[in-house]
Write a protein that binds this DNA or RNA. Structure first.
Lengths: 191, 191
DNA sequence: TACAGTAGAGAACGAACGTTCTCTAGGCAA
DNA sequence: TTGCCTAGAGAACGTTCGTTCTCTACTGTA
């Protein structure tokens, strides 16, 4: 049982590496098998189909994102700093070797039009992030309309960094976020 | 000759519809043939391979984007209004039936990892847009650092609207852009 | 009418892929 | 040791897809 869940994780991580680097459809199940160092039989005993594996990989990425964001927020004290920490987190990520954008956005572009399950997982992930930002915005006392604006910056930074191959988008987004937060707080205070 | 270029356009538009709706790899050349109402032989006499067709479709989208943005800017007088018109353009696009995000971002996610040609076309398209925004920013007199911030909002709006299936992202981006532009101009004036 | 050339329809080919099946070797109980 | 069960390696199967080939019908010309 523990052995099985450990194997599942091993396969999911291997598939995640390959899917992220090359795209889902460009990676065959045999390549996943080789990367995960499992037999094809075992692979199909752990996941009924490639579709199921793809969904599991996305859920895995989702958990990774959550813990990464939470860890970065740890180092920040005020809600404002926690919000800005999101962009610092993005900056570190963009610098990593093999960064190729947001796996959810990529998967949505590739499979969202044909796989409702993929579309749903991606939608949920993005909705969760919107909620996370909205909570922090509420804690700053700024009006709720600030939250989607800050989320837009984060989404835009991910695609821009991926396509331009330049991590500067994180710093750009952070500076824009500072301006927006300060303006929102000033507008609130003036009222 | 004119006949040939007209046929090419007919095929490119058909392929664009299918690729955009379902993703490139989910659409076979036979489906393109059916949608374009051409024979397979003719199809391959117009485009040497599916790869070539994909590139041509992206270039077609690129021209469409350029003319769309230019047309929207027509109705605006000041550089500031031209910048904000970008988000109005996005808003109209998001409302259209079958909107499924930015074709360049989608293609990059699907094929960027395996096709350098696709990655290059996407990169160029996004760089052109950055330049367009930077030109307008310069005309407003705001510091150049404002430009990538405004571009981030546009990129983020496209993915957010696609995934959430909600066109509100355009209005969010527009409001954020107004705030950023005003803040940048105020900071410049204060100096 | 006879014929050459062209283009369409779609069959055919070869490769790749998701999935299943077969064969074999190794471990373990009796 | 003998027999049984499991699991790995990878062959095999059925399908899909990109691309090419074949056959047929039609057009225009002499």
């Amino acid at each position: 049982m523990t052995d099985e869940s450990q194997l599942r994780r091993q396969v999911v991580e291997a598939a995640d590496r390959l899917f992220y680097a090359h795209g889902v459809q460009a990676v065959g199940m045999d390549a996943v098998r080789a990367e995960a160092k499992v037999s094809l039989k075992r692979l199909y005993s752990l996941f009924a189909s490639k579709d199921d594996l793809v969904i599991e990989v996305l859920r895995f990425r989702s958990r990774q994102w959550d813990t990464g964001i939470a860890a970065t927020a740890e180092g920040a004290r005020t809600p404002r700093e926690k919000l800005l920490a999101v962009y610092d987190f993005l900056g570190l990520w963009f610098e990593q070797d093999g960064f190729r954008g947001c796996a959810f956005i990529n998967s949505f572009g590739e499979l969202g039009g044909v796989s409702p399950r993929v579309a749903e997982v991606v939608r949920r992930q993005k909705a969760d992030f919107q909620r996370y930002v909205a909570d922090l915005v509420a804690q700053t006392g700024a009006p709720p309309s600030l939250a989607p604006q800050l989320a837009l910056l984060a989404e835009g930074a991910q695609t821009t960094a991926a396509i331009a191959g330049d991590s500067a988008a994180a710093a750009d987004a952070r500076r824009a976020a500072e301006t927006l937060i300060d303006a929102a707080l000033a507008a609130g205070a003036a009222r």
